[in-house]
Each structure stands twice: as C-alpha cells, then as structure tokens.
C-alpha cells in the first residue's frame, strides 16, 4: 500500500520559483521554504512544474528588461548622462529669476547712503540760501537795487538803421508818462518803421493831447 503523495500547489511553486530561487536573505531562507524545496528536489512532478515556472520567471525578467532596453537605447542613455552632468554643472549657480509682471523701472542712478546724505545737505543748504537771499531783497530799498543798463537809446536805433525790439528796461520804468510817450512817438517816426505810420495817422499824438491839455 502506497500513501498518496501531497504535491505542492501552483501558488507555492510559483512563489518558490520567484522568491526562493532568487538570492536568499532572511525572508527566503525560511524553514518552510527549505522544506518545500526538499520536496521539489525529490518529486518528479513538482520538479517538472517548478522547472517550468523557473524558466518562465527567467523569461519574464528578460522580457521586462528587453521592454525597457528597446525604449532606452544607447543614444538615449548617452543623452541622459549628458543631461545629468549638465544639471550638475549648473548646481550652485544662482538662477536668474524673471519677474512677472515686471516692476516699474526705478532710477538708474545708484543711490548709496553716503550720496543720499549729501543730497539732503545740499537741498537744505539751497533752501536756506534761497530764504536768506529772498529776505535781503525784500528789506533793501528799491532805489538801491542796481539795474543793468541794457537800455538802447532811440538815437542808437536810428543810427543802426535796423528795426530793433527795444527791451523794456529799468530806464523806461523810471521815465514819466510824458517822456515815455515821446519816446514812443520818436520811435514811430523813425525811418525804418513805415508799417506803423498808417496806424499812427489815426492816432492823436501825445504832443497834441498833452499840449492841448496844458
């Protein structure tokens, strides 16, 4: 009478084919696994099934590796290696950050704390000088203000023979009304102002007006 042989199940054999046959460590070298492998070694049927599963496991490994190797050929590996080294070459270099939206452009003149102090002092000094000068002008009598003698006499104009705009100067301001009007009349009667004579013809002269009044 022969006892019925208890064969290993497919799950168990597959696990053995994938794990126990793999390099062992504490997980694969359990007593249970060793016992199962002892059975496989002594059982033709389990041994044959196990051999098939081991072949399949190896084939699966090759297929998985081949699937990746087809995607990443040597050229791609070289390119990837170059990219890695490029990234490492740029490590530590400060990245340039583009601000978006851009900030409004500020004054380009570099302003340091020292120059800022000098600017403040100069502005304060200018203010003080301006105030003092203003006060001095205010307190001085009007007659003492020196006036620039940029007046041009009528005679000089006539001598030059050119139409000239006579600047309004302090000389005219010091004239009386009569004297001013006479100056104007003389200017009109000058040879080089014929365009004003037509207007002058319609206008009573200062001499007529003041002469009658007197």
């Amino acid at each position: 009478m022969t006892g019925r042989v208890q064969h290993l199940g497919t799950d168990r054999l597959t696990a053995l084919a994938f794990v126990v046959r793999a390099p062992q460590d504490d997980s694969a070298g359990s007593a249970e696994d060793q016992l199962a492998m002892t059975h496989v070694a002594g059982c033709d049927e389990c041994s044959a099934r196990f051999a098939t599963l081991v072949t399949d496991a190896d084939a699966l490994r090759d297929v998985m590796a081949a699937a990746t190797d087809e995607l990443f050929d040597d050229a791609m590996l070289d390119a990837q290696r170059t990219r890695i080294l490029d990234r490492l070459a740029h490590v530590g270099q400060a990245a340039r950050v583009l601000v978006f939206p851009p900030r409004p452009r500020e004054a380009t003149m570099p302003v340091t704390s020292g120059s800022r102090r000098w600017i403040s002092v100069a502005a304060a000094a200018g203010l003080i000088i301006g105030l003092v000068a203003g006060q001095m002008l205010h307190f001085l009598p009007a007659g003492t203000v020196p006036l620039r003698d940029d007046s041009v006499s009528i005679q000089a104009v006539e001598r030059s023979g050119r139409p000239t705009i006579v600047p309004a100067s302090a000389t005219f301001l010091n004239l009386s009304d009569d004297e001013l009007m006479e100056e104007v009349e003389r200017a009109i009667e000058a040879r080089r102002a014929p365009s004003l004579r037509a207007i002058d013809a319609f206008t009573p002269t200062a001499t007529d007006l003041f002469g009658r009044g007197r």
Partner: peptide
C-alpha cells in the same frame, strides 16, 4: 514586502507555468 510580493506573484501565476 513579503506580503506584497506574494500577492503580486499570485496575480501573475495564472499566466505562468500551466
């Protein structure tokens, strides 16, 4: 790790061997 591995193998074993 062992649990995940055995579950994975169990799912694959139907396509292997037999």
């Amino acid at each position: 790790v062992r649990v995940h591995l055995f579950r994975a193998i169990r799912k694959l074993r139907g396509m292997l061997g037999d």
